[in-house]
Design a binder for these strands. Structure first.
Lengths: 201, 201
DNA sequence: GCAAGATCTGACCATCCGGTCAAAACCCTT
DNA sequence: AAGGGTTTTGACCGGATGGTCAGATCTTGC
């Protein structure tokens, strides 16, 4: 099954990946079992293995697809736009990603936490290159005096950390906030203020 | 073995917890095996189970001991100190914790990521109470106009997110920075600037 | 409506893993 | 140096888990 071809293949591959995302993001690679994924997907275990050669392969497929989604918001940061607006928009998009795709965020987090055993190459390649490129853009803006001077890479780290926190540590965030809060709405407000103050001068 | 008593018990319990921290923080609860822990500890598997009744119990012992260490820096934030200094010092202590105890940071992160199945109570109890208390302190400082007005709980979240990022996503941080960087030194600089600008008005 | 594939499944296997246990080895006190 | 408690271990168990396979069932193009 190199590439899905028929309608059924497409649909079932999709169902499997969706179920796998559920289970892997909640239990990690080792913690997830094929039986669990099969149950969530509503398929039999041997049927999963008809579509993917191994548990490993399902996980790999998820990660591969994930990285692109994950980097898109940064890719969109436009060197020709207004600096503060661009950074803010990037932060917003990343926060929305946390809100709308928390499972993806956790899958990614677990992978990195465990030393990125199945993602090393992508991290050291695509991701590092993209950050380097955008760091140059940020540096240019700083040189032009359009945003305050800061270490551009750590600025990017800060956006990652602050936005992903709300997805990855969701349980903790909700416990600490208690009832009657909208974590993401409040986070949006807070981060807006934070980056306004940080970038201004 | 309710409490370690003899010298041997004390030493071996310690060795086991140390090894378990290594393995659990790298692989998660499910991913870790008693054989791995035993090997790292230099003891036989049945011997581990002579000191702890189960894998679960080893993990629990680690987490219990962890939470205190983890909350100490926040406890030390002094309502009678200078606001900016106190917040900065808290951030510093937390960053140092990330630098000096990355395994503990990752153990904690994995636990929360997976929904805190073995820490729910502590999160909803001690941690939430401590944050509520310190949020009141921060609010008082804001009311007195001694630091800029911000959502105090999200301010605490930001410190957690920004400091733990360097331990939890270490692989990514190092990959993106490349050779010849001291992540924690740079982070210290960056965060100092960030909180200076955020808290001033 | 009928082959030829594509899809699906029950039964099964080998391995791994947490945990047990009886007995061996090792102290420590006297 | 002997005896009683403590510590350690090899051998083993039962259940879980990733993966296989032969054959049953369903689709699809003709």
């Amino acid at each position: 099954m190199p590439r899905p071809k028929t309608r059924i293949q497409l649909k079932n591959s999709e169902t499997i990946l969706e179920a796998a995302l559920d289970v892997f993001s909640a239990q990690g690679f080792r913690g997830a079992t094929l039986d669990q994924i099969a149950e969530v997907a509503g398929l039999s275990k041997p049927n999963l293995l008809y579509y993917f050669p191994s548990k490993e392969a399902i996980h790999q497929a998820l990660l591969t697809r994930l990285l692109d989604t994950w980097l898109d918001p940064l890719r969109e940061m436009d060197a020709n736009g207004d600096p503060v607006t661009e950074v803010m928009a990037y932060m917003r998009r990343k926060l929305e990603l946390s809100r709308d795709y928390p499972r993806e965020s956790r899958l990614f987090a677990i992978e990195i936490l465990q030393g990125a055993p199945r993602m090393r190459a992508a991290i050291e390649g695509d991701l590092t290159a993209l950050v380097a490129e955008k760091a140059r853009v940020l540096t240019t803006w700083m040189d032009q005096g359009r945003i305050a001077r800061l270490d551009p890479v750590h600025l990017v780290f800060s956006i990652w950390a602050l936005t992903q926190h709300y997805a990855d540590f969701d349980v903790q965030v909700r416990a600490v906030l208690g009832e009657g809060h909208d974590p993401y709405a409040e986070a949006g407000q807070f981060l807006e203020t934070l980056y306004a103050r940080l970038l201004a001068h």
